[in-house]
C-alpha cells in the first residue's frame, strides 16, 4: 500500500501486543515525522536491549551480565528466596522495600487449560538452587489467581519434604479499599489471616 520501507515498518509495528493495523499506521507516521536522532535512539535502544540483556543464570531475572544485580548484591540475604512468575513482579516486590533476600523467576505459571506444566517453567532450576545454596526459606509470591495458586501448591508439595520453611504471601484487602466491595474469597482469606493488634 505504502512505499516499501513504510509498509515494512507498519507491518513490524502491527506485530506488537495490543497494536492493531490502524495504531501501527499512526505510530509509523509519527516515527516518519520524528527528527533523525530521536528515531535512531529508539532503534539503538531496541538493538542494545537484544544484544546486552539475557537471563540471570541463577535466578532467571533479566540481566545485563551472567548474573543479575540482585544476585551480585552481597548485602542481600541469600538464605531467603522469593519465587515470582515474571521479572516485572520483582520490581513490584522491590518497591515495597520490605524484602531483602534473593529472587527466583519461574517465567510463567502452571496453567492446565493452556497446557503449561511445570516442565515449561524454571522449577528444576529452583530445586537445584535449594540443594546448592543452603536456602532456609522460600516465599511463594505467585499471583493470587487460579494459575498462581496452582503453581504455589505444586511448588509447596515439592519443597516441603526438603525440610525448609515454605511460605505463601498473604491475601487480603487492598489498603485504601472499601469492605463492601471486597469479594467473598478475599474477605474470607483476610479474616482467616487476621492477626493480633499491638496495643
Amino acid at each position: 500500500m505504502y512505499a516499501g520501507p513504510v509498509q515494512e515498518l507498519i507491518d513490524q509495528l502491527g506485530r506488537l501486543p495490543g497494536v492493531g493495523p490502524k495504531s501501527a499506521q499512526r505510530i509509523a507516521f509519527y516515527l516518519l515525522k520524528l527528527p533523525k536522532e530521536d528515531a535512531e535512539r529508539l532503534a539503538t535502544a531496541i538493538v542494545e536491549v537484544k544484544a546486552r540483556i539475557s537471563f540471570c543464570r541463577r535466578c532467571w531475572n533479566v540481566s545485563e551480565g551472567e548474573f543479575c544485580e540482585m544476585c551480585q548484591d552481597t548485602r542481600r540475604d541469600p538464605t531467603i528466596v522469593c519465587v515470582v512468575e515474571e521479572p516485572r513482579d520483582i520490581v513490584a516486590v522491590e518497591k515495597t522495600q520490605e524484602f531483602h533476600g534473593l529472587y527466583h523467576v519461574l517465567q510463567g505459571a502452571i496453567s492446565p487449560i493452556e497446557g503449561i506444566g511445570p516442565e515449561q517453567l524454571r522449577v528444576k532450576e529452583l530445586l537445584a538452587r535449594v540443594d546448592a545454596e543452603g536456602i532456609k526459606e522460600v516465599i511463594l509470591c505467585t499471583n493470587p489467581n487460579l494459575e498462581g495458586e496452582a503453581t504455589a501448591m505444586y511448588l509447596a508439595r515439592l519443597l516441603k519434604p526438603l525440610g525448609l520453611s515454605v511460605t505463601r504471601i498473604a491475601s487480603g484487602l487492598p489498603v485504601g479499599g472499601d469492605l463492601e466491595y471486597a469479594d467473598e474469597l478475599t474477605l474470607g482469606r483476610a479474616l482467616e489471616g487476621r492477626r493480633e493488634v499491638d496495643a
Binding site: 492446565p112 487449560i113 495458586e149 496452582a150 501448591m153 505444586y154 469479594d183 467473598e184 474469597l185
Partner: peptide
C-alpha cells in the same frame, strides 16, 4: 459469587480434575 468452591481451589488434585471438566 454464588459459590467459589474453596475446597477445589485449595487442593491441587481437585483443581486439576476441575480444570479437566472445564
Amino acid at each position: 459469587a454464588l459459590d467459589h468452591f474453596k475446597a477445589i481451589r485449595e487442593d491441587l488434585d481437585r483443581l486439576a480434575r476441575a480444570t479437566t471438566m472445564l
